[in-house]
């Protein structure tokens, strides 16, 4: 009696779960969503293990979301023959990641540091949190977590709804438009169609997003509020000196082991670019960064071929422009002797 009852209940529950799962997946697929990967600390930690490659065979990238959109990894790997290890973190300053790599005695490779000034020079803990968590996770992750990550990635490659940023219960509840009390900050929800993430941690804008003017507008509104509306004045004076000294210490540690470091400022445009230039004048921040750390840099504005891009939502390149920009970046790095062979000779964007 009890067995029959429990068996029926179990079958009914499985049927409900299965029907829901199929319906849920079909629903999001019908809206144009495709399987993509959670760009989380587990995936970051997995890529972090790939930094120990001979200097001539890989370049590690750290920074914020900009380099994740603006570097097209297949293009990079095709024309350089080198692996690109993408360790940049969305909405995050790379300074903690730089420190982590500097403190890792085994790392003596090539490192490109993406500079997005409002994040790079920020002392706001919120802009360092993701790096703090990812670095800690990498150092503390257990064998069980590694296996779970592998299984999770296999599932994410097949199921569109398995994407926390878009479809988790919390995200869906947070999407409900409810007014907040005065003074309460709620992180705005990016358009669900904004981006896809690949297994190698490249991020690119979806065609749905690029074709949707309302979504583009929503994203630019969010940038306006988050970055340009940031009431905190940029760091300066002694505080800036201390940050630069810390960066130099990290860079020197990597160089002392034979590693190489370069700073890269990739394109932004429109009001975002104007706001960044106004808040972080080139001479006071970018140039000082290069001087204080005695490190070379590539700024997109210094090269006519990369100074013209229009970012669809002001902050990141479209997938097509990312391919184009990557060709130029490889060439510019080649001119600075970044590659064992002078690959700039091979590049013809």
């Amino acid at each position: 009696m009890e067995t029959t009852k429990m068996a029926r209940a179990a079958l009914l529950s499985l049927a409900i779960a299965l029907v829901f799962l199929l319906a849920w997946e079909s629903f999001w697929r019908s809206k144009g969503f495709i399987p993509t990967y959670n760009d989380d600390k587990a995936l970051w930690a997995m890529k972090r293990t790939e930094i120990y490659q001979p200097s001539g065979s890989a370049t590690v990238f750290i920074g914020s979301s900009r380099i994740k959109f603006n570097l097209d990894i297949p293009t990079w790997e095709k024309i350089t023959g080198e692996k690109a290890v993408q360790l940049a973190l969305v909405g995050t300053s790379p300074i903690l990641t730089l420190q982590d790599l500097a403190d890792d005695e085994k790392f003596a490779g090539k490192l490109v540091v993406d500079v997005t000034e409002p994040l790079f020079f920020s002392q706001n803990p919120a802009f360092h949190q993701s790096a703090k968590e990812s670095v800690a996770y990498y150092h503390q992750q257990t064998p069980a977590e590694k296996v779970s990550t592998a299984i999770g990635l296999a599932l994410e490659s097949q199921l569109a709804f398995l994407e926390e940023r878009r479809f988790s219960l919390n995200t869906l509840l947070n999407d409900i438009p409810l007014p907040n009390r005065p003074g309460v900050f709620q992180f705005p929800a990016f358009p669900k169609t904004f981006e896809w993430n690949t297994l190698n941690r490249q991020t690119y804008m979806s065609d749905m997003f690029l074709a949707d003017s309302a979504a583009l507008k929503r994203q630019t509104d969010i940038w306006a509020m988050l970055i340009m509306g940031n009431p905190e004045p940029p760091i300066a004076g002694k505080e800036l000196d201390e940050v630069l000294a810390g960066i130099k210490t990290s860079v020197d540690k990597i160089r002392s082991r034979g590693g190489r470091v370069i700073f890269v400022r990739t394109p932004s445009s429109g009001p975002m670019e104007a706001g960044e230039q106004q808040a972080f004048p080139l001479e006071q921040y970018w140039s000082r960064l290069l001087d204080a750390t005695d490190t070379p840099g590539i700024h997109y504005k210094d090269h006519p071929e990369t100074a013209h891009y229009i970012c669809p939502e002001w902050s990141h390149l479209s997938p097509t422009d990312a391919v184009d920009y990557t060709h130029h970046l490889v060439k510019q790095l080649g001119e600075k002797g970044w590659f064992a062979l002078n690959k700039s000779d091979l590049v013809n964007p």
Binding site: K5, L12, S13, L14, A15, I16, A17, F20
Partner: peptide, 13 residues
Amino acid sequence: WWTVGIAWGLMLV
């Protein structure tokens, strides 16, 4: 049985 099954199914969902 169906009450248990529905509650169980909703938890899985």
